[in-house]
Design a protein around this nucleic acid. Structure first.
Length: 427
RNA sequence: GGGGGGUUUCCCGAGCGGUCAAAGGGGUCAGACUGUAAAUCUGAUGGCUAUGCCUUCGCAGGUUCGAAUCCUGCACCCCCCA
């Protein structure tokens, strides 16, 4: 068997384990079953889920069996860990839809065939929904000393805040997650739970419950949260999270996110998120130190992740779009090529007749295309040299778009700033 | 219940009768530099049919030639006393 523990260690993926001394050997002696939980709070996974998902994938490749647990039930409660405020509750329908969407995404990263290492995907709603309140209190709740629960960081942090409390509902969250572990132990022989470092309290709660309910020794392992060198979360942009769903974050935007990763963060991302071998990552480290301007690390990172999440086609499109968009003028391109490349970019349709004669004012068009919030802003941005028509800077606020600006028969490309594009299609 | 303080443009925060679309900072956006980075620097940051017009300073009225600024009432928040 592959030494998964050593692998995770050099990648910086181990933050804390419940048994540093024995876990490495335990994982070497035979295939094990492990799980990580995902709360279905949106209809797509995002970059924040990627670390845990990749850990499951690594375990699977090392010969173990991963289970992805969808928190259909726990998602209805809301995990207070790492949250500063009480969460709003999602409806059961929404959660059901989210579970289905996330599941589809996971199928790209884990192998769900039926072999001994085949991944499993389970939804804790299946068993949680069957409990009655009284039974749950008697069978599970009885095993939770409140003083221990109160001592958990996740709970204490919330109780110490004066501006927001902790509801009984959220307080109960850890019982549900703890029971999940026990349940997976019973029905899948799952003995290891992995999660982000903020999950420590929930994981150990499950281990304690397992012991009290007579399921023997369970293990837990947490990974560091993937943060940037400035301390903020990786995978967040001004426009929100970077999603795995191509509908929410286009393959191009996804690729661009990684291309733009800071030098200081590139090494950690390569280790934690990609499956590039150690030698390659170390040689990228060296290359980055010697010649950061080449951004080889970022390129490899973006390639590896885009390929993984969006497949070879997604990667090819993202790369092609990048080449063109950052390449200058596109006079030589055909309409079809442009359409293809700009598939990701917001576009709007206008009547071709409007280009005839006088044409339409650039100012209005920038607003219609959504690049400027108002004509005033459009005017300013042109003055600042931030507006481009077909990738050529435009300086006149009186500029009108006419048939002469068309690429092929129907397209004009507007750009604001470095990388914000909008496509105008004329019919 | 009594007394005091507050509510300002995306956020924080100054303004306390005209020169206020409203200082300063943050954020954001654009430009320069560069490596589609970081840092730095510059500029912009309510709208429009644009040397003017309209909307904005908790809400509703009022005083005044003129109000974010004064008065009255209402709502919400904070502090002190009971």
């Amino acid at each position: 068997m592959t030494d998964i523990f050593a692998e995770l260690t050099w990648r910086g993926l181990i933050h804390q384990t419940t048994d540093d001394a024995n876990l490495p050997a335990w994982l070497m002696t035979q295939p094990r079953t492990l799980y990580a939980g995902f709360d279905p709070t949106a209809d797509s996974l995002h970059v924040g889920h990627l670390v845990a998902l990749m850990i499951l994938r690594r375990f699977q490749q090392a010969g173990h069996r991963p289970i992805a647990l969808m928190g259909g039930a726990t998602g209805m409660i809301g995990d207070p860990s790492g949250k500063s405020e009480e969460r709003t509750l999602l409806s059961a329908d929404t959660i059901g839809a989210n579970v289905a969407a996330m599941e589809a995404q996971m199928r790209r990263l884990l192998y769900f065939d039926s072999g001994p290492q085949g991944a499993a995907l389970v939804n804790n709603y299946e068993w949680m929904s069957r409990w009655t309140y009284l039974d749950f209190l008697r069978d599970v709740g009885k095993n939770f000393p409140v003083n221990v629960m109160l001592a958990k960081d996740s709970v204490r942090a919330r109780l110490e805040r004066t501006d927001s409390g902790l509801s009984y509902t959220e307080f109960s969250y850890m019982l549900l997650q703890a029971f999940d572990f026990v349940r997976l132990r019973e029905s899948f022989g799952c003995e290891l739970q992995v999660g982000g470092s903020d999950q420590w309290g929930n994981i150990t709660a499950g281990i304690d419950l397992g012991r009290r309910m007579g399921h023997g020794q369970l293990y837990g392992m947490t990974c560091p949260l993937l943060t940037k060198s400035d301390g903020t979360k990786m995978g967040k942009t001004e426009r929100g999270a970077v999603w795995l769903s191509p509908v929410r974050t286009s393959p191009y935007a996804f690729y661009q996110y990684w291309i733009n990763v800071n030098d200081a963060d590139a090494g950690r991302c390569l280790r934690m998120l990609t499956e590039l071998p150690r030698e390659e990552i170390e040689s990228l480290d060296a290359a980055r130190a010697a010649d950061p301007a080449r951004r080889e690390s970022q390129r490899r990172l973006a390639e590896a992740l885009t390929q993984l999440v969006h497949g070879p086609e997604g990667l090819a499109k993202a790369q092609q779009a990048t080449k063109v968009l950052f390449g200058g003028e596109f006079g030589a391109l055909t309409e079809n090529e442009l359409s293809e490349i700009f598939a990701d970019v917001p576009s709007c349709e206008l009547a071709r007749a409007r280009l005839e004669g006088e044409g339409i004012g650039l100012l209005d068009t920038l607003v219609t295309a959504g690049l400027a919030a108002s004509k005033g802003e459009a005017r300013r941005k042109i003055g600042e040299g931030g507006v481009y028509v077909n990738n050529r800077r435009e300086n006149s606020i009186d500029r009108r778009l006419t048939t002469a600006d068309l690429i092929g028969n129907s397209i004009i490309v507007l750009r604001m700033g470095k990388a914000k594009y909008a496509l105008l299609r004329f019919k």
